[in-house]
Design a protein around this nucleic acid. Structure first.
Lengths: 100, 100
DNA sequence: TCTCTACCTTGACAGGTGTCGATCCAGAGC
DNA sequence: GCTCTGGATCGACACCTGTCAAGGTAGAGA
């Protein structure tokens, strides 16, 4: 894989390289309707609002989730394509061997 | 996903969350015979030996690669199971939704 | 045994990251 | 307009990470 590809991919892996962000993504993905309000998420952690907001921003900038404001609340939703792309990279037999 | 699971998983994602380590893993996986000598790897980067060694250690401790000394050289080899496990986690539709 | 090579470990430093309190902004409702 | 509430941003802090120079260890060969 090229140096540029590695930098882009590493950003996404790095975003998932934190227990809080992993659980945030998991909670969003498994929430009914496939989306979760921030108020639902903050309750699940023993962390301050700004900290949750920070982690959500990291996930957003990595392209793993999208946020949308609807009235008073902000809803987050998983980007399944981003996960599928990551998953494909890890199946080394096909992807890695030929992509270097 | 439980808090404990998240911590374990995050370690592995974090290990891949660096461009150098991603390329290292990719180089090892795609090298002939499925294993690569450290001397092959250092040439591919503009980094000092200790730095490469440090990154290899991170990958090793995450369970993504194994190292073995054979005579003068040390050979590293990918752990395909670790990659497959990660890949499976990312297929959210099945795994994530039920594992929380 | 001595030396050379390949690699690892240690120590130190700059820069990045997670966290929080304080503050700010956007909508809803009065 | 004003106020309340849900979130985001800012500023600051402790801690973690990537990097290298210097020194250490293990095996090969003389």
């Amino acid at each position: 894989m090229s140096s540029g590809q590695a930098v882009e991919l590493a950003k996404v892996f790095k975003a998932l390289g934190d227990p809080v962000r992993l659980r945030l993504a998991s909670l969003i993905a498994s929430h009914e309707g496939g989306e979760a309000c921030v108020c639902d998420l903050t309750d699940a952690f023993d962390l301050s609002g700004p900290t949750i907001s920070h982690h959500l921003k990291v996930l957003r900038e990595a392209g793993l989730i999208t946020g949308e404001r609807r009235g008073t609340w902000v809803y987050y939703r998983i980007q399944p394509d981003a996960l599928r792309r990551l998953s494909a990279v890890l199946v080394l037999d096909d992807a890695w061997a030929v992509s270097v």
